[in-house]
Design a protein around this nucleic acid. Structure first.
Lengths: 209, 209
DNA sequence: CCACTAAGTGGACCACAGTTGCGTTAGCCT
DNA sequence: AGGCTAACGCAACTGTGGTCCACTTAGTGG
């Protein structure tokens, strides 16, 4: 059983190659789009043999997933505006920022696309949201303590609901994203949380007793 | 300027070919998945020369979009349960049904995937949602008349919000879809609509005066 | 029912993504 | 500072998705 390429001597040349290829991928995605991006072009741009890219990553999808995981591992800051609704607004704007920043959007586009049929890409996206959901539970806990959300409010669902309208616009209906939507969405979720609508139904949580 | 192939003699053989290829595509997507689907296999399965498929559709994407548009043109029924929240629940369950029916889901998967980079696929998806939004405005009008939603409530946004949680689960976070979510989502949107949160802000609609 | 031509067939052909094998360069460890 | 070998480079090769072209089949209109 051989170790994967790039893990035994991760320093020096290996690291340089990795960075150069990652940078070349980003640039290619922006310049020629996903359809025009090929491993051969990336390799040429990175000043590397295409064999190297194939040996290290094996496919364009895996390369993109790798670059995405790298980028996505920089966690977003935990908002603390003083109110639940304000925190939700901040999270909403963070999602919008992600989808509106061309070089980030280009990568996310490909990962979302590949995740539909590729388990590794799927896992990368899931990890990404796991970190956001972790943030969400902190916000919800605080909101519950302040009386702004009903006890038992589903934190993961709050995070999903915060992002869903923008992701749906970006990837399903294909519409422009108006930042003002974040305010309405935050207001809606804050209201629902306060009224206890985002508490899972009894039959769903009865197992824990 | 030549007419597109298949439009001049749409009867008989042309129609048979179309149906056979569409059926072969659906079957292939279910059996071998998108990754394993090739035009050559589809042609073989449909009992047709691959040249025929290439001349008629030009690419796998265009073929899928064609089949999707055909399928999607069967409008979903307008729900009428007597309450706004009940209608919203019904719409939610319709979205869930679409995403949970394997042979429909397989096609939608590919269209969503392609829509990320292909304008024609994007347009097909947009058309699909246009028909749903048309339904939405009827529901919202009725709700406003019954006093269940604030006047000026954004019908398109209601429809987006109804579907967003399921589409986000299906294509972004990659989670299972629990039908119970539809009830919570419907309750949340009904509440927000009643409270006037889904009315676009003044500065956004001031143009109409 | 015949003539016209749209639509389909089959096979040769081509471009190019992805593979393989071997020689070269340069991390890493002692 | 020198040896071992991971990682890279280069060039030839292969399989296959997609195109092209001459020929055949079958709608459709008069």
């Amino acid at each position: 059983m051989r170790e994967p390429v790039g893990t035994v001597r991760p320093g020096g040349r290996t690291a340089r190659t990795r960075a150069a290829v990652a940078e070349a991928l980003r640039a290619e995605l922006l310049e020629v789009g996903y359809a025009g991006t090929t491993i051969e072009r990336i390799a040429q741009r990175a000043g590397v043999a295409k064999t190297t890219v194939y040996r290290r990553w094996g496919s364009l999808t895996k390369l993109v997933v790798d670059v995405f995981s790298d980028t996505a591992s920089t966690r977003i800051p935990l908002p603390d505006t003083g109110t639940f609704e304000g925190d939700l607004r901040a999270l909403g704007h963070a999602s919008i920022a992600l989808l509106s920043t061309p070089h980030l959007r280009a990568i996310v586009d490909v990962v979302v696309r590949e995740a539909i049929h590729d388990p590794a890409a799927r896992a990368a996206l899931t990890d990404f949201f796991a970190s956001r959901i972790a943030i969400g539970s902190v916000l919800v806990d605080r909101a519950v303590n302040r009386g702004e959300a009903a006890p038992g409010t589903d934190a993961a669902e709050v995070i999903r609901l915060i992002g869903a309208p923008y992701y749906a616009r970006a990837y399903i209906t294909g519409e422009e994203i108006d930042p003002a939507v974040a305010d309405r969405t935050a207001a809606m979720i804050a209201l629902a949380a306060r009224e206890g609508i985002l508490v899972p139904a009894p039959e769903n949580q009865s197992a824990s007793r």
